[in-house]
């Protein structure tokens, strides 16, 4: 699987989570890109990012309380991201582009597929 080869540094749990969340992904021609999303003040910052299959998104929670990044259709989910912690997912081809925080459903953001 291309993603696992390229992301040999990822932990087993990350690989499992990725497989569960997105299925088999594919890198863009220019290679995978790292995207950072900060969760600050009950907002995903930036609120919109442009992604391609194979890219990795890392959410970092800078709030006091836990959050999640979860697909609107629940097909992928970072699980709980505690205060000061980060979680990553690798983008697949079949994910929904809108996501939210399961704990705070007013928090929403968008991924735009390149």
């Amino acid at each position: 699987m291309t993603i696992r080869t390229r992301r040999a540094v990822l932990s087993n749990s990350m690989a499992v989570l990725t497989a569960m969340a997105f299925g088999t992904g594919r890198s863009s021609a220019a290679g995978p890109v790292e995207h950072a999303v900060s969760i600050t003040g009950f907002k995903f910052v930036p609120e919109t990012i442009t992604i391609a299959p194979g890219d990795r998104i890392t959410w970092t929670n800078n709030d006091i309380v836990p959050h999640t990044a979860t697909a609107m259709d629940k097909r992928w989910d970072t699980g709980t991201i505690a205060k000061g912690k980060s979680k990553s997912l690798i983008v697949g081809e079949d994910h929904l582009t809108e996501y939210f925080c399961r704990f705070h459903p007013k928090m929403k953001a968008r991924l735009i597929l390149r």
Binding site: F42, I64, P105, K106, M107
Partner: peptide
């Protein structure tokens, strides 16, 4: 101030 941000989110959630 951080708490207020959290509690305002709760208020919006409660409204929903």
């Amino acid at each position: 101030e951080a708490g207020l941000q959290i509690f305002k989110a709760h208020e919006a959630h409660a409204q929903m």
